[in-house]
Design a binder for these strands. Structure first.
Lengths: 163, 163
DNA sequence: GGCCATTTAGTTGTGCGCAATTGAATTGTG
DNA sequence: CACAATTCAATTGCGCACAACTAAATGGCC
């Protein structure tokens, strides 16, 4: 494995060397596991994330959900509508700020938590990693996300200046 | 930080402890960087991956593209149609096996490679990681993907048996 | 108080990811 | 050769992600 100083562009363009591809593949592989495990709960993975937040924090406005999940209303509005149709959630305009919509668990939604508590354990088992390895990988990925977000902001800004 | 032996289920359900969430976030953060950088080329990230394969291997049937990218025809067919509309690619039924469709670069598609060679370098810069760190993270993620795929297969099978 | 920028959800449109189905071509088997 | 099983691409339908836009409510400033 000689990394010659004049590494040709071919190597840089090789698919199997691109970190993003591995990341993407892992993310979709997770999707497959979650799809099977969450099928019994009738939830998709993003819906499951919303339910996690509500179980942990209680009622939340759409805005807060979006901040936690890095999602905007374009994604959340229809998703929450589906959760509402499924009877897991209600949406109510806040009385003290009518712009805001409070998302509340229904009895049924709160009860679903009992079915969900076993999910993380099954996921961890599916990874074949131990808890320490997972924590380490997680912190690495979080670093990466932070760096990428900063880069996006920078790129977008310079792109804006070029206009 | 006491991890009590009787760790309650609450901890297991915490969003910020779930590896998949970090992974997902990183994947979408990458999406943001690629979106900005690929804008000049007029490509989305999945389209860029297809082009990478064609630049590296030359003409490929849809089947092979799907194997490399872990994507099925449901995703690739419309994507390739868009690349064809953009004039980067042609699709031709194979003569020796009429089921297969060969995807070929047009002159324009081949020429786009010159614009693309700088992309990986900019991506690496955006991560803030050095090449070794990236390689290490990549191999970790590939392990994870392998384990998860195996788990999905196992879960799907047992789910199938329950039917 | 009146006006304007900001905040918050929702809507629309585009593209990806995947399951399920369809239809045509090919391969295997008797 | 005939027929069944398999392969391959395309299509349909659903849900997510994101950009761009709309509409309503709020807050700050004069």
């Amino acid at each position: 494995m000689t990394t010659a100083p004049d590494t040709p562009t071919t190597d840089w363009l090789r698919l199997d060397q691109q970190i993003c591809f591995s990341l993407n593949a892992a993310s979709r592989a997770f999707g497959g596991v979650y799809r099977v495990i969450l099928k019994d709960l009738g939830l998709t993975y993003p819906q499951y994330l919303v339910m996690l937040l509500l179980w942990e924090h209680g009622d939340l406005p759409v805005k807060k959900l979006g901040e936690h999940l890095r999602l905007d209303s374009g994604t959340l509005s229809p998703l929450l509508k589906r959760l509402e149709t499924a009877g897991l959630v209600r949406r109510e305009r806040s009385t003290r700020d009518e712009r805001s919509v409070e998302v509340r668990l229904t009895e049924e939604g709160a009860a679903l938590r009992d079915q969900a508590v076993q999910v993380p354990r099954r996921i961890v088992a599916a990874t074949g990693f131990d808890v320490d390895e997972i924590r380490q990988l997680r912190s690495r990925l979080d670093e990466l996300t932070t760096a990428l977000d900063a880069a996006t902001a920078a790129e977008t800004e310079t792109a804006g200046r070029r206009t």
